[in-house]
Simulated assay, not measured.
Amino acid sequence: MAGVNTLSAFILAFIFFGVFITTEAQTSTPAPNTISVPCALRSNTSCSECLQNVTCLWCTPTKQCLDYPVRNILPPRSVCPLNDARWGLCWVNFQILIITMSVLGGVIIISILVCCFCCCKCERVGNKREDAKVERQTRARKSRQKAKRTEMQMRHDEIRQKYGVEKENPYARMDDH
């Protein structure tokens, strides 16, 4: 269970780091004069200069600054190959981003399934323990009842002997004697 907690903490830290990097990339304020410059005019400059505008996409091999194709989630290969496309940060390419997010998603799903499995297993073990406890209590109660019944029977027999009303036949009526 400690391994699952460590894994969960690692995943949360990794997600926090990713959100922090993404937020940092999106909140960096460009200079006022660079906002109005279209992406195409920033071609043949640098990646960092191109990505000052959030709507721009940098293609490394061609050194082109392009408008991000907003109709697609990922830029098509005809615009720029995923391995060479940069958006938000110059050091993050789309291919590595997709692989990382897929692995993260898989790890999160697997950890959720492991947690659910562990919880269900613990619940079943707990139910088995409760069932065994109830069964032990029932057996103990029955044995106490049996001991009390035997003790009562012995007391009744002693009283019958004392007053001479012993029964030879336990099914016979008392006033037949």
Rank of each mutant, 00 (worst) to 15 (best):
Q26N: 14
T150Q: 13
C80R: 00
E130Y: 07
R129L: 14
Q137A: 11
I35A: 09
Y163R: 00
L12V: 13
C119Y: 10
P32E: 14
E166M: 12
V103E: 06
S28L: 11
G88I: 05
L51G: 02
I99F: 13
P170Q: 11
M1A: 15
E130Q: 13
A9K: 09
H156M: 15
T100Q: 14
K133P: 01
Q95R: 11
V114P: 00
I21M: 10
F117C: 08
L97K: 09
T138V: 12
L113S: 11
N127Q: 15
T29Y: 01
Q137K: 10
T23N: 10
A132L: 07
V4S: 12
L97F: 14
T45Y: 06
Y171H: 14
P75C: 02
C56K: 02
T138N: 09
C116H: 08
W91C: 03
D84L: 03
T6Q: 11
I98Y: 07
C122I: 02
N127E: 14
E24I: 02
W91A: 04
I15D: 02
V134H: 05
C65T: 01
E158W: 04
E166V: 09
A9R: 09
S111R: 06
T62I: 09
W91H: 12
E130W: 06
C80S: 04
S78I: 07
P30N: 05
V107N: 00
